[in-house]
Design a protein around this nucleic acid. Structure first.
Length: 500
RNA sequence: GGCGGCGUGGCCAAGUGGUAAGGCAAAGGUCUGCAAAACCUUGAUCACCGGUUCAAAUCCGGUCGCCGCCUCCA
């Protein structure tokens, strides 16, 4: 049974979706006025993990994630770049998709854009006015927070306690200082749409209500985003949605992820320490970025400083190394038939593999405790490494089957967390024997031998040098290959290499 | 002023009643020509004080320190 921390009830609750076996999940997508930073990325990674786990558990997940493509920030960006809001939105939507792909984030099933849902928003606003939840002033429409008794229930505030106007001047035309815009009248030159209240554009909160209700309907399962969205965005969204529907709940489970710090400081524009995800990805692999986020709980703040990234890199290397060791073990025995005979030790180890999966699920069931789940992975790595060491001394008949089972388990669980997403596509050490009919270089043509053959040749020469204890030559070859990104390791049964 | 969170070994980070996961770093060791990888060994009584309990990092009260939100923001 999965338990989820629900912001609305401020407690962990058993997860019972609206429909058995189905989960409707809405995640607040980006406002496309810039490249996304690692704070944004953390949120998308968090919900990607949640989604992957729900799918793993057998749920059919419908993931809806909006693109906010009309907004003040987009308009001002367009003005800065002397272009149109539409082009700014278009360019950064594309960039967003590139970044998500680079991070191996599974795309949403539906990705609605605000500008494509204006008529629905207008309809919703009109209904809110009819029901006395909203009012028009000079072409602007505001939601009346006092008309909705539950206002504040998500963010745990009440109207009396909030200091509206403390930091921002209150518009005198509003009935209540906390009333928020559903529709904004257009200024000259801004993108605008025809409405019953004149030319204008929607407020920020209304789009998410409209689009989530359109694709997932009232009472859908999970609504997610960063903590900072709790107020006012989600509070407002909840109020207008439930006021519009005249029923509750709008959402069954509100899920919010924690923030990103840089070297103990909040990442913010004023501090000038915003880091774009594409900048990070120039130095670290998506797996490193991902494992860093996985090693702490999604609701807690996380530090993305250099030191943290370096630690995460080494941590991922440990997993990666283990996968490589297991794969290499199997490759060297390609073609051999696995034998069923197992030692007592192997029977225990097999049980351990199943138990690891059980403990992994137990961790994830508990509000997606990825830190604990990753710990299970590392414990599994240790067990498998120990087993490989044992096999070096005395290889048992069932080793092939056990190692395969271990590798399968490790990869299966790691992939639920989004790690090793494309490991099959990465070129790894392939024994020359498997290169088969790969062109070996044909005299008289310009075809060159496969690079792997050349590496094997160098390692062959190095092996000869080592045989006559010519350490200078041996070390020279290894060092030069290292410079070229080829790591050579000497094992009991010969050298092996991999790209790093 | 309101709301919320945090303080666990050198660093990071799980753990919310039964004597503390995991990662990184460090030291020693095994293996090894060297290197790499791997394995083994070594370390915390959980900010502080008081209380509840047979038993608390974990519950209650208080103190100190740090942080977030209350405006656009993941």
């Amino acid at each position: 049974m999965i338990k989820i921390y629900n912001t609305l009830t401020a407690s962990k609750q058993e997860f019972h979706p609206r429909e058995d076996g189905e989960v409707g999940m809405y995640v607040c997508g980006p406002t496309v006025y810039n490249y996304i930073h690692i704070g944004n990325a953390r949120a998308y990674l968090a919900f990607d993990t949640i989604k992957r786990y729900l799918v793993y558990k057998g749920y059919q997940v419908i993931h809806v994630q909006n693109i906010t493509d009309v907004d003040d920030k987009i308009i001002s960006r367009a003005a800065e770049e002397s272009t149109t809001a539409g082009e700014v939105a278009e360019a950064y939507t594309r960039a967003f998709h590139e970044d998500m792909t680079a991070l191996r984030v599974v795309p949403p099933d539906v990705e609605p854009r605000a500008t494509e849902h204006i008529p629905h928003m207008i309809e919703m606003i009109r209904t809110l006015i009819e029901r006395g939840h909203a009012y028009e002033v000079d072409g602007d429409v505001y939601f009346s927070v006092e008309s909705f008794p539950g206002y504040g229930k998500l963010s745990k505030r009440n109207l009396g306690e909030m200091r509206a106007g403390e930091r921002v001047e209150v518009d005198e035309r509003k009935h209540h200082p906390m009333d928020f815009a559903l529709w904004k009248s257009a200024k000259p030159g801004e993108p605008s749409w025809e409405s019953p209240w004149g030319q204008g554009r929607p407020g920020w909160h209304i789009e998410c209500s409209t689009m989530s209700l359109e694709y997932l309907k009232m009472g859908f399962d999970i609504h997610g985003g960063g903590r900072d969205l709790i107020f006012p965005h989600h509070e407002n969204e909840l109020a207008q949605s439930e006021a519009y529907a005249g029923s509750e709940p709008f959402v069954r489970y509100w899920v919010h992820n924690g923030f990103v710090n840089i070297d103990q400081q909040k990442m913010s524009k004023s501090l000038g320490n915003i880091i774009l995800i594409r900048e990070i990805l120039q130095h670290y692999s998506p797996d490193v970025v991902r494992i860093l986020t996985l090693m702490s709980h999604y609701r807690n703040p996380i530090d993305f400083g250099t030191e943290a990234l370096e630690d995460a890199k080494r941590a991922f290397d440990r997993l990666d190394e283990c996968v490589f060791n297991l794969t290499d073990f199997l490759r060297r025995r390609a073609g051999r038939q696995p034998q069923p005979a197992r030692t007592q030790r192997e029977i225990v180890l097999t049980d351990y593999l199943f138990d690891a999966q059980r403990r992994f699920e137990e961790a994830m069931d508990d509000d997606f405790n990825t830190a604990k789940a990753v710990a299970v992975l590392f414990e599994l790595v240790r067990e498998l490494n120990v087993y490989l060491v044992e096999q070096e001394t005395f290889e048992t008949p069932a080793a092939l089957a056990i190692v395969q089972h271990g590798l399968d388990t490790l990869l299966k669980l790691a992939r639920v967390l989004g790690l090793f997403s494309v490991v099959e596509e990465q070129e790894e050490c392939i024994p020359v024997s498997e290169l088969g009919a790969e062109p070996a270089g044909v005299p008289g043509t310009d075809k060159l031998p496969h690079p792997q053959r050349l590496i094997e040749l160098l390692l062959d020469l190095r092996a000869q040098a080592r045989a006559r204890k010519d350490w200078e030559t041996s070390d020279y070859i290894r060092a030069r290959l290292q410079d070229m990104g080829i790591k050579v390791e000497d094992r009991r049964d010969g050298a092996r290499w991999r790209k790093i």
